[in-house]
Simulated assay, not measured.
Amino acid sequence: MPHTLTPPHPTTTRTSATELDRQVRRLYRLAYHANRRRRTLTNPNASAHAVTAAITRLARVLAAAERLLTMPGVAEHEETPYARSFLTAAERQLNAPSTRLLLIADAAHQAAAHADTADNDLHVIVFRDIEQHCRHLVDTAHVEPVLGRRGWPRRDHAASDHLQQQAAQWGLTSHTEHPTMPPHQPTDHPAVPTHLVRQAAERAAARARCAAGIRCTECHRTYGAVQVNLPGTWLCTDCIPTVNARLTARGYAPHVRPIDGGTPQHGPYTVHVWNGSGRGGVSLHCDTPQRAQFLAETERPFNNTGYTIYLADRTRE
């Protein structure tokens, strides 16, 4: 009797199709998750913690997706290519130079903070310069394509290679491999460009000027001014009579005088730096008048930065 093939039972066919759909839905969830993690790696302001978490989880997601693609029917499913596009983009970003630059940028940020604590102005300037250039390259790597170009031009690839070499010379790459360890600052630093040396000298000069205290908001020349009973106003001894005379000439009763207690050497100082030609502002906190004035003169988050110094609990009498 000839052998004949038994047609598959309808229930078995239905179960196989349901299982395939379930696996494809799992693949889609992994693809969307990978896309979210990929976007973290394109954010120029991402911290090292966020970047390392995204790298670790993205690697796991890609491995899980690879296992799903080996299951029967998943790779051939008509909706799989769309999911693959997210996974391919995520894998490309995981291995992109800009991802490594994000880790270097965060290492440089931490190294600059350590150098600032140690009053090492040259290292502060160098590490901030490295961080700024790294984050700028990460930003330009993900802008909308112009005239059909996508990604970095040749000069940006060269700049990326140079930044990674510079980071290795300054001991920042060891931190990118072990983010929990503080960045290493070499005793014998590499050659520093002239413009950075000049900036470091200007920063050191500002530190020396600010050793006397807060600068007078009236004459802008004298340091060591005291807070008066006008919020955010600091006046030297010579300018208090000048301000009162001006108030008298305008018909106001002169009432400007120093606040009792003068300018404490330790207190909750707040330096508010603001954008003089647009929106935005940042508040910085410290505990000495010298540090407050130094922050006011050296922190420049905007092209046209102004500042106001407050003593937090004594802005009004």
Rank of each mutant, 00 (worst) to 15 (best):
P182Q: 09
Q227R: 12
T176S: 12
H157I: 04
R154N: 08
R203Y: 00
L163M: 03
A212N: 08
A206H: 06
L196E: 07
T222W: 07
P182E: 04
S174R: 15
R155L: 07
A191Y: 00
T187A: 09
G224Q: 06
T217G: 10
R198D: 07
C210A: 15
P182S: 10
H157D: 10
A211R: 12
P183E: 07
T217C: 06
H184E: 03
Q165F: 04
P190R: 03
L163V: 03
R203S: 10
R155Y: 03
G171D: 01
C216W: 09
P179L: 06
V192A: 06
Q185M: 12
R215H: 04
R155A: 13
R198G: 02
G171E: 01
L172P: 06
T222Q: 14
R203C: 05
H189R: 14
A191S: 12
Q227P: 07
A191L: 08
A201D: 02
E218L: 06
A225T: 11
L196Q: 14
A211I: 07
P193Q: 06
A206L: 07
V226R: 08
R207M: 10
A159N: 09
T180V: 11
E177K: 12
E202Y: 02
H175Y: 00
Q199H: 11
A191M: 03
G224V: 08
A158V: 12
H189D: 01
H162A: 15
R221H: 08
P183D: 05
R207L: 12
Q169F: 01
Q185R: 13
T173V: 11
